[in-house]
């Protein structure tokens, strides 16, 4: 369970550009939920993810993970249980290291960082298998540097690294936005499969309303730091792309876009 409670978030406090994004904001995501979050630019989607991961800290309120208050936890501590995929495919991998080294790094997440060999030959076959499941040919590229991969392949590698360890939460920050439509579909289906198989609790920010309606079991639409639509379960399943698009357009018109 992830929860934001009475969050207050102000950007540039005390300056002329001060902007209060969240005031008393709350969102509770029970275990096993896969939430799609949509909303126009500046509505607070990414800020919400950053608050959960600890990339930014709120001026007020609490962040909870299961029954623990993690508001004061540094980012790296939270990420022991949370996996995060960024919009930029380069963000989740080390460009100068080989795929094998990247996978080995991810695999050492809960091991002691000592002077044991960084890569373990006995694990290579397992990594190959993990990468094969991504379906982008990564299994034959173990000794290439991650920097030589295409955006889609790199995002797939980032996902493979993310789920190599027993994470419980998955945070997806427009993770298909930088990819071409076909690769985006592949990555999205991969994401959905991983979330189901691993029974992850996931939050996905996306600008793709089709993904938001066809994947996941809860849909949240945000606008100016508030939730304007929140449907879960059967109501979410019955929600069609046109409904969301309609509401989205209304809000945009109201904004004068």
């Amino acid at each position: 369970m992830l929860e934001l409670k009475e969050i207050r978030l102000v950007y540039n406090p005390g300056t002329a550009r001060e902007k209060c994004l969240f005031d008393g904001f709350g969102l509770r995501v029970p275990d096993g939920q896969f939430v799609s979050i949509v909303g126009s630019n500046g509505s607070g989607k990414t800020s919400l993810l950053n608050l959960i991961c600890g990339t930014i800290l709120p001026q007020g309120g609490h962040v909870r993970m299961d029954d623990r208050d993690i508001t004061a936890w540094p980012e790296h501590r939270r990420l022991r249980r949370i996996g995060r995929i960024h919009q930029n495919p380069a963000a989740g991998t080390c460009a100068g290291m080989t795929l094998l080294e990247n996978m080995s790094l991810a695999d050492s997440k809960f091991k002691r960082m000592n002077l044991m060999p960084g890569t373990d030959r006995r694990k290579v076959q397992g990594y190959r298998e993990q990468l094969r499941q991504m379906g982008l040919g990564l299994e034959d590229m173990l000794h290439q540097r991650a920097g030589s991969l295409s955006g889609g392949q790199r995002q797939a590698l980032a996902m493979a690294m993310c789920v190599l360890t027993p994470i419980e939460f998955l945070i997806l920050d427009e993770h298909t936005a930088a990819l071409d439509p076909k690769t985006a579909d592949t990555i999205m289906e991969l994401t959905d499969r991983l979330v189901r198989e691993r029974r992850l609790t996931a939050l996905m920010v996306t600008h793709n309303l089709r993904y938001a309606t066809s994947f996941g079991n809860r849909l949240v639409m945000m606008h100016q730091g508030g939730v304007v639509l929140d449907r879960a379960g059967a109501k979410k399943a019955a929600t069609r792309l046109e409904d969301v698009l309609g509401l989205f357009t209304d809000i945009s018109v109201e904004l004068g876009n």
């Binding site: 790296h76 290291m97 790094l105 991810a106 044991m116 960084g118 890569t119």
Partner: peptide
């Protein structure tokens, strides 16, 4: 080594190190 790889990762992409907790 594991530690050496972590050091290389820190220079290559600090976010990966954070993601490793």
């Amino acid at each position: 080594t594991r530690l050496g790889c972590l050091l290389r990762a820190a220079g290559d992409n600090g976010r990966v190190v954070t993601a490793l907790g």
